[in-house]
C-alpha cells in the first residue's frame, strides 16, 4: 500500500499532494452534471415531445407552440457555451443567488444542454413510424396515450442513445463551466495544471474524464440494447 503511494507520488507528485482536492473536484463534477442533467432531461424530454406532437401533421398540431419552441431551441443552440455562461450571469444570480460555484453552474449548464437534448429527443421520436401512430389513432388512443404508450415506449432505445450523447456533452460543458469558477474537474485542471504549470494534474484530469465518458457510454449502450428488444 505504501509502495503504491510512493509510486504515485513519484509519477504524479502534484496530484498526490492534493488527493482531497482531486476527489472533491470529481464529486463537484458529478453533482453539477447530475443536477443539471436531471433538470435538462425533464425539460428537454418535455420540449422534444411537445415539438413532435405540435408540428404540422403531428397528433396535436399547434403551429404557434411548435414554432416558438423551434425558434428558441435554434436560438440557444447557436450561442457558444462560453458566451452563454457570461450572458446568463444576471439570471443565475437572480435565481440561485450566486453565479459562481457548483450552484452557479447549474443554470448555464441547463441552458446549454436543453436545446441539444430537445433535438436528440425529437430525432428519436421521429424514428417512430407514422403508420404506427396512425394505427394507435385508429384504435381511439388519446394524445396522452399516444405519447406515453407509443412514442416514448417505441423510441426508448433512441432516447437512451440521445441521453448518452447529451450526458457526455454535458461533462464537456461542465469542465468549461468549471474553468470560469464553477469548481469541478475543469476548475481543478485549470487552476493547478494550467495556471501553476503542474502538467500531471492536467493529464490525470484528462484520464479521469475519459474514464467517466466511457462508463457513461457503456451504460448508455447497455440501456439502448435493453430497450431495443
Amino acid at each position: 500500500m505504501s509502495q503504491t503511494a510512493a509510486l504515485l507520488e513519484s509519477i504524479i507528485p502534484n496530484v498526490a499532494s492534493k488527493w482531497p482536492v482531486y476527489f472533491r473536484s470529481i464529486a463537484e463534477t458529478m453533482v453539477m452534471v447530475g443536477i443539471s442533467g436531471a433538470i435538462a432531461f425533464a425539460i428537454g424530454l418535455t420540449l422534444g415531445v411537445t415539438i413532435t406532437i405540435t408540428r404540422p401533421g403531428g397528433v396535436m398540431p399547434r403551429p404557434l407552440v411548435y414554432h416558438t419552441i423551434d425558434k428558441l431551441v435554434n436560438f440557444f443552440r447557436s450561442i457558444p457555451f462560453i458566451i452563454l455562461l457570461a450572458a446568463l450571469i444576471p439570471l443565475t444570480r437572480f435565481v440561485v443567488g450566486t453565479a459562481i460555484g457548483v450552484k452557479g453552474a447549474i443554470i448555464p449548464l441547463v441552458f446549454g444542454t436543453v436545446p441539444f437534448f430537445t433535438r436528440q429527443i425529437e430525432a428519436a421520436l421521429a424514428e417512430v413510424d407514422a403508420g404506427v401512430i396512425e394505427a394507435a389513432q385508429s384504435m381511439g388512443s388519446s394524445t396522452t396515450g399516444i405519447v406515453f404508450r407509443v412514442y416514448l415506449k417505441e423510441s426508448l432505445s433512441g432516447i437512451a442513445r440521445g441521453t448518452t450523447i447529451t450526458a457526455i456533452n454535458l461533462i464537456g460543458l461542465s469542465a468549461m463551466a468549471g474553468a470560469v469558477g464553477a469548481g469541478g474537474l475543469g476548475d481543478f485542471a485549470i487552476r493547478y495544471g494550467h495556471q501553476r504549470n503542474q502538467l500531471d494534474v492536467t493529464y490525470v484530469t484528462v484520464l479521469t474524464l475519459v474514464l467517466i465518458v466511457n462508463i457513461i457510454q457503456a451504460i448508455g449502450n447497455g440501456a439502448a440494447r435493453c430497450a431495443r428488444k
Binding site: G131, A135, V150
Partner: peptide
Amino acid sequence: FQQFNLFAS
C-alpha cells in the same frame, strides 16, 4: 394497413 403498423416494442 399495408405495412401492418405493429408496435415493434
